[in-house]
């Protein structure tokens, strides 16, 4: 492995730790749900929390890049998708419109 500065062994261990830790995060939720009983309202709250996480993923991946703003093309594409989705356009049209609108803006030089 000719990656800068690290031996293959180190990188493989790092990869395994990341994989195991990620699996641990995935496993923790279902384990907690099977071990403990939650009141119905707490269960509803858990579903809402997933929606909140996904919504904030939409916001951050649409509008930011690294620690700054994402420019114009991508937010515009996602906004087009949002309008189409709100008007109940088919999923396929919504997702492809996001890509096309963004690509067209970039094609004409708007980043």
């Amino acid at each position: 492995m000719n990656s800068p500065m690290h031996s293959p062994g180190t990188l493989i261990v790092a990869m395994l730790v990341l994989a195991a830790g990620t699996y641990g995060f995935r496993l923790a939720g279902p384990l907690l749900r099977s071990r403990l009983t939650f009141p119905p309202r707490a269960e509803r709250l858990m579903e809402t929390s997933a929606i909140v996480l996904l919504a904030s993923l939409v916001a951050t991946t649409a509008l930011t890049e690294g620690h700054g703003a994402a420019g114009i093309a991508r937010p515009f594409g996602v906004a087009v998708a949002g309008v189409l989705a709100w008007r109940k356009a088919p999923f396929l049209a919504v997702v492809l419109a996001a890509a096309v609108a963004t690509a067209v803006l970039r094609l004409v030089g708007v980043e």
């Binding site: 929606i51 996602v78 998708a81 709100w86 690509a103």
Partner: peptide, 18 residues
């Protein structure tokens, strides 16, 4: 980026949570 693929991920999530 030239194909606007980076806009697809947030669009997928948005369409499905709306």
């Amino acid at each position: 980026g030239a194909f606007g693929l980076d806009a697809m991920f947030p669009a997928v999530l948005l369409a499905l949570i709306l």
